[in-house]
């Protein structure tokens, strides 16, 4: 567990690069207080933990062959990124739109605390080299407990970087920060679209 914790700690900054960019603007663009931010962050981290546990189970069950498959890595993550990125941009652009705009659906998603859940899912499924390493490790573990412990260590190490994020909410009350945060969320969406297409194109080229 210690080695995966260290791995999570070392790769946590990369994790923040992929999800902090989404989560930080999201928190700034929110409309509730610090309590809401803490609850959003908890949902986000909880989702990550659940997804990691699911991954740990799958890794242990299927073994490493499926997880090294280029199809899974490129096509599925590519499609997920694109879908999620479109949702983010929708969320960003739709804020100033009329109530009949399709972005209303995303606003509804926001109210139901599903956005942090979506963020948690995508962040957990971002197949970075570190996660692939953990998957490989889990796939080769003898018992499911060992597989869970490996993922728990990784989760704890990489989550440390997200803990100071509620402080961002202190600036949130100002309209300016809300606007900038919303626009930044849209930009993060564009980054994820690019990432998604890169994965898909890479998948097609590499077969």
């Amino acid at each position: 567990m210690l080695d995966t914790f260290i791995l999570g700690l070392s790769s946590g900054s990369t994790c923040l690069l992929t999800c902090g960019m989404v989560f930080f603007p999201y928190l700034m663009a929110g409309s509730a207080g610090t309590r809401k931010i803490i609850s959003d962050l908890s949902f986000f981290l909880m989702t990550r933990l659940i997804v990691y546990f699911l991954l740990a189970t799958l890794a242990w069950y299927f073994g490493k062959t499926i997880f090294t498959s280029a199809i899974f890595r490129n096509y599925i993550s590519g499609i997920l990124y694109i879908l999620f990125a479109v949702m983010l941009i929708w969320y960003s652009v739709g804020r100033n739109r009329k109530p009949d705009c399709p972005a209303k659906i995303v606003t509804t998603v926001n109210n139901k605390k599903l956005v942090p859940v979506f963020l948690g899912v995508v962040n957990s499924l971002g197949f970075c080299p570190a996660l692939l390493l953990i998957l490989t490790k889990s796939a080769t573990q003898g018992t499911i407990t060992q597989s869970y412990l490996a993922f728990l260590g990784f989760f704890a190490g990489s989550s440390l970087y997200f803990l100071p994020l509620p402080l961002a909410g202190r600036f949130r009350k100002k309209k300016v920060f809300e606007t900038v945060g919303t626009l930044a969320t849209g930009l993060a969406g564009i980054i994820f679209i690019i990432k998604g297409f890169t994965n898909l194109i890479g998948g097609i080229i590499n077969g």
């Binding site: 990369t14 690069l17 100033n96 626009l183 849209g186 930009l187 980054i191």
Partner: peptide, 23 residues
């Protein structure tokens, strides 16, 4: 053009500052 978009450079600033720092 909505003046809402004039805040975009601040969003770009936020994103490039974070990505540049991390990468």
């Amino acid at each position: 053009i909505s003046d809402y978009w004039r805040w975009m450079p601040f969003a770009v600033l936020l994103m490039v500052a974070i990505t540049a720092a991390l990468s």
